[in-house]
Simulated assay, not measured.
Amino acid sequence: MALATILTGKLKFAEVVQAASLDEAVEKLSVRSDISLALFDLAMPGIDSPANLRAVRDCFKTLRVAVVSGSKSRQDVLSALEAGVHGYVPKGLGVVDLAQALQLIVDGVIYVPPSIAILPSAAEEQPASPREAALPPKSALATLTPRQRDVLALLVEGKSNKAIARELDLGEGTVKVHMAALFRGLDVRTRTAAAVAGGRLLQAAS
């Protein structure tokens, strides 16, 4: 049974709005105030960093956000929870269990798969070597979605959120979400710091 059918048939949602990427999801969330639950797959284009999910949580305070993923990785579960999601639901659950997990999330419970209680092996707990720890697995630029890169390029040019929204044909709310993701992805707190860090990244990539 498709996830959309579970949502409408068992959880009684009136409508299911689908998106093919994180950028598209953010744009739809920004123009729809009636969406109460957002489900993200870790394989969705644009979800390269938990910071992107955190930005969604930061900008849509009343929205319930959960991951529905084929990955059973303990690290994926913990990373998603650290980003502030309200639940992590493995796709391998049966229809009844999947519906129950989603209902718990809707009801305000933080759902995690029972497998999270299984202690990791010594190999999984082994920390990265100092050299590996010093180098991120991907550059900050590589973790950005295409739309976030567009926003960053215009930010570096000194444009305001309103100007960025106008140039990219986006709502200001959408730009705000992308900006929040940029701040987290670049580990900065101000527009100026983001512009400086972004300028260096873009220059190094060119």
Rank of each mutant, 00 (worst) to 15 (best):
E132H: 06
P114T: 12
L22P: 03
G158P: 02
L135M: 13
L98R: 15
I116D: 04
P90F: 03
G158S: 04
S30D: 04
L202N: 05
P90Q: 14
L81H: 02
E167W: 02
A19T: 10
S49K: 07
D187P: 00
V196H: 01
S69D: 10
K10R: 13
I47S: 06
S73D: 11
E132A: 15
R149Q: 09
A2Q: 12
L39R: 02
P45Q: 05
K176N: 06
A205M: 03
R64D: 09
V67Q: 01
A25C: 10
L168G: 12
V65A: 08
A55Q: 03
L102S: 03
G92S: 14
S79A: 15
A134V: 02
A128I: 05
V151N: 10
D41A: 13
L63F: 05
D41H: 10
L81P: 04
R184F: 04
L78P: 00
T145S: 15
P137I: 12
V65S: 01
L11D: 06
K10Y: 00
I164D: 07
P90M: 08
G46E: 03
V175H: 00
R131G: 00
F13N: 06
A83D: 07
G9P: 01
E132G: 02
L78I: 14
V109N: 08
V188G: 04
A80R: 02
L7R: 07
H86W: 03
L42N: 09
P90R: 13
K12G: 05
R32M: 09
